[in-house]
């Protein structure tokens, strides 16, 4: 449905997007993840025909965003970071205007507007002037604006920003419910959002794709190391040294300095060292209070991927 090939975009001399390629299948939800200024918004703006790429091709629903931009525009709904709302208009009037310029058939327009207001839950404020709405409602009107012409492709730039926790859950459910019939790209800072809503994640940093996979696979594959938490009763320094000497252990960190100390042990993911760890502790006559695996979260993966680059460059 969406085919991005070797897209590069310069702002003057500054490169914002560097040779990005990825594909999104029909009905899929793709999470677009990256720190600030990574090039997420730029990529989305290229996809939505808002601005052209310096080089590379982008096809949405089989149409080229550059040469057939009107065809593409008919098929996308776009929610930019700041919802594009005319503050002095009333909600229903605004959506009617958007439906008009999105090319909704005049006979279906009224119905389309009513349906989309129902979908995002803003019927109660349909007669209010947008300026007077709360941030959460404004965000929902923004979402309604992207959905009103029932587009095949939805591009959402941080859709849950500024919402309260209950609304966030509602919006996520709404987005999930749209999958299958709509193809969705969603950018976000909030990592749990990705693991909750997206089937696939593209992590980008400094304009480049640094990883692309399902959220689960990413955590598994890119974690690289397995992490264990141990609580051992014994002389801290001795325990640390004993643990560090075991085969397969990469890193040992002391977490507490009390009588019973906590240790974080990282080992290569392919070796199972838990029995060995337990045996070592018991053999030395120390007490083993607790041992539990600590999965590396998506946050860790994200940080690892987006900060590794920096170390490599300097």
């Amino acid at each position: 449905m969406i085919d991005v090939r070797q897209v590069t975009r310069f702002y003057g001399r500054v490169m914002a997007v560097d040779n990005i390629s990825f594909q999104v299948d029909k009905g899929e939800i793709l999470g677009f993840l990256g720190p600030n200024a990574a090039g997420k918004t730029t990529t989305m703006r290229i996809l939505t025909t808002y601005m052209p790429a310096t080089s590379g091709t982008v096809k949405v629903a089989g149409y080229d965003v550059q040469d057939q931009s009107m065809q593409v525009r008919k098929r996308i709904g776009y929610l930019p970071e700041n919802p594009p709302l005319y503050m002095e208009m009333r909600v229903a009037d605004y959506l009617d205007f958007v439906a008009k310029i999105k090319g909704v058939d005049p006979r279906d327009r009224k119905k389309a507007v009513a349906e989309v207001m129902d979908k995002v839950g803003i019927q109660t404020v349909s007669g209010r002037v947008i300026k007077t709405l709360s941030k959460g409602y404004k965000q929902r009107v923004g979402l309604a604006q992207a959905l009103v012409h029932n587009p095949d492709v939805l591009i959402l730039d941080e859709p849950t920003i500024g919402l309260d926790p209950k609304q966030i859950i509602e919006v996520r459910q709404l987005i999930k419910s749209l999958a299958g019939t709509h193809t969705i790209i969603l950018s976000t800072h909030i990592l749990p959002e990705v693991s909750m809503t997206c089937e696939r994640v593209v992590i980008i940093n400094k304009g480049r794709v640094v990883a692309e996979d399902t959220p689960d696979n990413l955590t598994r594959k890119l974690a690289g190391n397995q992490r264990l938490y141990l609580e051992v009763g014994g002389p801290v320094e001795d325990v640390r040294r004993a643990l560090a000497q075991l085969p397969g252990v990469v890193k040992t960190t002391v977490l507490t300095n009390d009588k019973t100390a906590g240790f974080q042990v990282e080992s290569q993911s392919d070796s199972e060292i838990r029995p060995l760890l337990a045996k070592t502790v018991i053999d030395r006559g120390w007490q083993l209070f607790e041992m539990k695996p600590e999965g590396m979260s998506l946050e860790d993966v994200f940080l690892q991927l987006t900060t590794k680059e920096e170390v490599g460059n300097s």
Partner: peptide
């Protein structure tokens, strides 16, 4: 300023 230009420039309107 308000960003509504993004709506116009991504809608099928010349």
């Amino acid at each position: 300023k308000s960003g509504t230009i993004e709506l116009l420039l991504t809608s099928p309107i010349t």
